[in-house]
């Protein structure tokens, strides 16, 4: 079987298009690359959706945590502590069983127990908490002069937030936020290893990599391939976030521009 045929059969296997049965014996390198690559669709889907939705909640949480009002501050603090203080793996398990019992009482919550929605909700809440903390840190380090200048121009409330506070917050938080994005994409690999079932063997990249490793008892082929895909993904994230960073810093004189330093900044 040629490699092109394999790609046609298994390229979209992870979303249920193509050959139904996974290869059983005599695995070729091409099959490894195709199936694991096919699984990356899920990782990218979870990552992008969680980042986009999480961004808004994270902003709200950051503003809430920085708010002088106790009724806004306390819930934000608790939310952030809850999701940053416990392992994502346990959160997945808890959420899955929670959704399961919810489904038993109210059948309309059926979709929550499948990975595409249930796991996405957990990832969304989790990344909101982590990004919220990053944004909160940035919010606190906004130069005092910027806010004073806005006051001097007569800007208050929403206008000041939208035109001064928020862009500066993003600019300061962006390097750390890039790291967070890398981590979100990496933690998407946990989804099918926690309780969420891979229905009809439609799993993510790690699911297929461990499938191969289990079948061949040889970890030295599938995991490096997985690593290759993830390093590629990381480079794409770093590049695209770098473009945004350039835009956020475009008004600054060259020597004051925040350099994007991608040091390993462990988030979870």
């Amino acid at each position: 079987m040629s490699c092109l045929q394999t790609i046609q059969d298994y390229g979209l296997r992870s979303i249920g298009i193509g050959e139904r049965l996974l290869p059983k014996t005599d695995f070729t390198l091409c099959e490894h690359f195709t199936l694991i690559g096919s699984g990356m669709i899920w990782n990218i889907y979870f990552g992008i959706m969680a980042m986009i939705t999480g961004f808004f909640l994270a902003t709200a949480l950051a503003v809430g945590k920085a708010s002088p009002n106790k009724w806004l501050r306390k819930p934000s603090q608790w939310f952030i502590f809850l999701f940053r203080g416990s392992p994502l793996f346990i959160q997945f398990f808890f959420a899955y069983f929670f959704f399961l019992s919810l489904k038993k009482t109210y059948p309309m919550f059926d979709a929550l127990t499948s990975a595409w929605l249930g796991a996405l909700i957990v990832l969304f809440l989790n990344t909101s908490a982590y990004s919220g903390e990053i944004f909160y840190g940035a919010l606190r380090s906004i130069p005092k002069g910027d806010i004073e200048a806005a006051d001097a121009y007569g800007m208050t409330g929403w206008a000041r937030f939208r035109r001064i506070t928020w862009p500066t917050m993003l600019r300061l938080a962006w390097p750390a936020y890039t790291n967070e994005a890398i981590f979100v994409f990496q933690s998407t690999t946990l989804v099918f290893f926690s309780a969420f079932p891979a229905w009809q063997q439609r799993g993510d990249a790690l699911y297929y990599a461990s499938y191969f490793a289990d079948k061949t008892f040889n970890p030295f082929v599938p995991y490096p391939i997985l690593a290759f895909y993830f390093i590629l993904l990381t480079l794409v994230i770093v590049w695209s976030f770098g473009m945004v960073n350039k835009r956020l810093n475009r008004h600054l004189p060259a020597e004051r521009k925040a350099k994007m330093r991608f040091r390993l900044n462990l988030a979870r």
Binding site: I182, Q186, T189, L206, A213, P219, Y223, F230, T234, L264
Partner: peptide
């Protein structure tokens, strides 16, 4: 050694090393 953990999910390392070390 430092760079290799960057960019690859740690869970992949866990699954890899346990078999690799054993073998």
């Amino acid at each position: 050694y430092i760079a290799i953990v960057r960019g690859v999910p740690d869970i992949a390392f866990f699954l890899f090393f346990v078999i690799a070390l054993d073998q």
